[in-house]
Design a protein around this nucleic acid. Structure first.
Lengths: 207, 207
DNA sequence: GGACTATACGGAGACACTCCCCGTTTTGTC
DNA sequence: GACAAAACGGGGAGTGTCTCCGTATAGTCC
């Protein structure tokens, strides 16, 4: 099991690994229920460890969040691969990717805020993740721009931010939930070039 | 019970009014520097009053924020009147109004968050303000829809949320700041019907 | 298996913030 | 100038973050 010999770090102790997993499980649950602003001490308690243990594994809230999201990255990546091969055209692929991003950023209540902060600072563990996704966004965007279905002046980073912002708005969800589709429609019209279709109310399936 | 207490009932004591003003001044300064999340105790101290006094005047952070914004409402209203009379067309008027809203919501760092929350709950002092602005948005939007310059499926509330979201994104400002214009461009293309112009980067001269 | 050490644990504690409570001070009035 | 209502202020309870250090334990060597 010493395949992590890259940094010559010794294998972590068994109890440390176990506690780390417990903390991650508790955090997943707790953040799901209380949003990313939930009490870290409460998470430690729920995980059955002391506060010190939590902070040793994850020096701050962001580090914990980053570890939590790492697990979900795979899902997003496979969604990307699926879109690459199965999308009918470049525009639909980009649209699908942005929707996937938006959903990803809505995994926990309040998650868009640290993500936005990370996208700006580039010095946080979350920033790495964000940059990777911006790169993917760029891939889809360029494809759409090449085939003339996306405006040329649009930048990938801005689209990423739009996805975060959409997620942010959805977080406060009006009761009817129709805003989610409306926002997606406005966004698509925002970047699409020959938007003959009128999306947002009729064209999308209510999800 | 005396509704709309426009200096009826009993006149507030002089020191109370004075302290209220001091608190408002301090809060304006403090929020400008530290964002809306700044310490309320610190504001009390800077205002030269005890914490109890602050909380008596403004039971919570939102109430303080609402009072602070009330002063700025007038500016927005006059901007609205200006757009009503001077805008070249309905689309430009709506665009100008949304830009004004976006700027308003960016008055303090972090302001979009409580505004978004207020727009959803409708039971806060801020909610009243928000609803009023949504109504104004509706006015501009309907005008634009009537003359065929805005998509018919767009709703005013969603545009208001888009303005808040734009402000939210700007809050994390990338260094270059070009995102501000990019977002505005995407938004306009999002709701405009015959967007022949390519805004956000260049293209149109007389904007 | 026993001893030894690096590693990890846990929870008390220092510090910050929100908000309430109530004894004290100030204001306005007669 | 006296008096009651109005307002003040800051101590303190409750909650949260994050650190420090004495103690427990896993893994290793004999």
């Amino acid at each position: 099991m010493s395949r992590t010999a890259t940094s010559s770090a010794r294998a972590p102790r068994a109890d440390a690994r176990r506690n780390r997993d417990h903390i991650l499980d508790a955090a997943e649950q707790y953040f799901s229920k209380h949003g990313v602003g939930g009490s870290l001490d409460a998470i430690a308690k729920q995980a059955g460890v002391g506060a010190g243990t939590l902070y040793r594994h994850f020096p701050n809230r962001e580090a914990l969040l980053a570890a939590l999201l790492a697990a979900r990255d795979e899902a997003l990546m496979s969604r990307r691969d699926e879109l690459r091969t199965k999308a009918a055209n470049a525009a639909d692929a980009l649209d699908g990717w942005l929707e996937a991003l938006t959903e990803w950023a809505g995994a926990f209540d309040g998650l868009p805020d640290p993500l936005r902060a990370a996208a700006a600072t580039s010095t946080s563990p979350l920033a790495v993740t964000c940059e990777g996704f911006i790169t993917t966004t760029e891939e889809f965007l360029h494809a759409a721009q090449r085939d003339g279905s996306a405006r040329k002046e649009i930048r990938a980073r801005d689209l990423f931010l739009v996805a975060l912002a959409t997620s942010w708005v959805r977080g406060a969800a009006l009761a009817d939930g129709t805003s989610a589709a409306a926002l997606a429609g406005i966004t698509r019209n925002g970047w699409e070039l020959n938007s003959s279709h009128t999306r947002g109310v009729s064209a999308t399936t209510a999800d």
